[in-house]
């Protein structure tokens, strides 16, 4: 009867003196897995702007309908998103948007810290998506 108890204590003691495996988040962080799909970001072009051409493919492919795009055209006929809204509360991080994007403008990032004090903070606009890029480089 005492033997199993000792066996158990042995394990306890061995763990007690070994290096802990708990990560002290947020002081310590783990690198996500290579194929981890976190919060999306926009790739910057040489001018620091988005390369998105607002084709609307991400909008139509998104299974949870969390992307809203309004397309605008400048005088030269170049297109850009006049409105780009990605609702991360609704997003299921499936990565279809990245896959559909014909110009590789949107990517699934590594950031998983999805926190905020209001619902609005979870809606990523073009500016927020460009800011997200810095967390991924």
């Amino acid at each position: 009867m005492i033997i199993p108890l000792l066996k158990g204590l042995k394990l306890t003691l061995s763990k007690f003196f070994s290096k802990p495996i708990t990560i002290q988040y947020p002081e310590e962080r783990l690198d996500p897995a290579p194929r981890w799909r976190g919060i999306q970001y926009f790739v910057r072009d040489e001018k620091g702007e988005t390369t998105c051409v607002a084709c609307g493919l991400c909008m139509v492919v998104c299974p949870s309908g969390c992307i809203y795009v309004e397309t605008a055209e400048d005088e030269q006929g170049r297109r850009y998103p006049s409105v780009y809204e990605l609702n991360t509360i609704r997003c299921i991080f499936c990565g279809y948007c990245e896959e559909a994007c014909p110009v590789n403008a949107i990517k699934m990032g590594k950031n998983y810290e999805l926190v905020g004090y209001s619902r609005d903070e979870f809606i990523l606009t073009t500016g927020r998506l460009l800011e997200e890029e810095s967390l991924n480089t």
Partner: peptide, 9 residues
């Protein structure tokens, strides 16, 4: 129109 839209938009 400077604003454009696909059929689904």
């Amino acid at each position: 129109s400077p604003i454009k839209g696909r059929k689904w938009q």
